[in-house]
């Protein structure tokens, strides 16, 4: 694992009078997998959007230790955000066609290569609606990977999937992180399943990171306030709705 960190300092965001992120500090080791957990509507996706620049934070900074430059970062959306009128190939090639310096042939080779690595070579000319949900996730991942980002932000990548597919998506993220060596910052509700693939867990609550540690530490001695979240029961969760 790299000794460099993605350093987040004093990240704050409020909507009107509601404080969503309250001066968040995080040190995320590069090339690791960090998962942010927390109750629904607590601001996990807002945190990712502030880091990616989709939302403008009210205050705070994001940098990499030893460097002022934040490495290139991609974002994988909950619902994949694929362009339904573009084919799989066109979706994945989009960032290269619109921004990169590559020629037609080079784009074709690069996209074909990544689609092959993600086992999508047979879906090249299909539209997103013509492929399965799992394949759509892989296409979204291919699009996120095509520009060679060092960090990928995953916003609840397993939402709406059955347990089997959930595990295949987690497995896909683990395998491709090992293969491509990118940093993962993920928001997930899938506790404790997500602990199988993550290196660090951050628990976001009331705008602050209340817990930061490895899944092993978390499961062996969870802080008392996290107990209910990790082991929900009908009695304890009655009031939370």
């Amino acid at each position: 694992m790299s000794s460099e960190n993605l350093v987040i300092r004093g990240l704050s965001k409020r909507f009107g009078s509601q404080v969503i992120l309250d001066a968040i500090d995080m040190d995320i080791p590069l090339k690791s997998h960090t998962t942010v957990i927390g109750r629904s509507g607590i601001g996990k996706s807002v945190l990712l959007k502030c880091i990616s620049g989709l939302l403008k934070a009210d205050a705070g900074s994001i940098s990499v230790s030893n460097s002022e430059v934040v490495p290139p970062c991609s974002y994988m959306f909950q619902q994949n955000a694929l362009f339904d009128s573009l084919t799989v190939f066109e979706n994945v090639a989009l960032p290269l066609r619109e921004k990169g310096q590559m020629g037609r042939k080079e784009i074709l080779d690069t996209v074909s290569d990544i689609l092959e690595k993600l086992e999508l070579e047979n879906a090249l000319h299909k539209y997103p609606a013509e492929i399965s949900g799992g394949m759509q996730k892989r296409v979204a991942l291919a699009r996120a990977l095509i520009t060679g980002p060092e960090i990928i932000l995953f916003d609840e990548p397993t939402t709406g999937l059955d347990p089997e597919r959930k595990f295949s998506v987690f497995d896909m993220i683990r395998r491709y992180r090992e293969k491509f060596g990118f940093t993962v910052l993920m928001v997930s509700h899938d506790v404790p399943e997500v602990f199988e693939i993550t290196d660090q867990v951050a628990w976001l609550d009331s705008g602050k990171i209340r817990y930061w540690g490895t899944p092993k530490q978390l499961m062996s001695s969870p802080p008392s306030e996290l107990e209910t979240f990790l082991n929900p029961s009908l009695e304890t969760t009655q009031s939370s709705l």
Binding site: G53, L54, C73, Y75, F77, A81, F83, P95, E98
Partner: peptide, 21 residues
């Protein structure tokens, strides 16, 4: 529809000028 399906946000994360595109 593209706005609701987060496709416009996706363009932004790809550093593509959404209005231009």
């Amino acid at each position: 529809i593209q706005r609701n399906a987060e496709q416009i946000d996706a363009l932004k994360t790809m550093n593509i000028n959404a209005k231009g595109f």
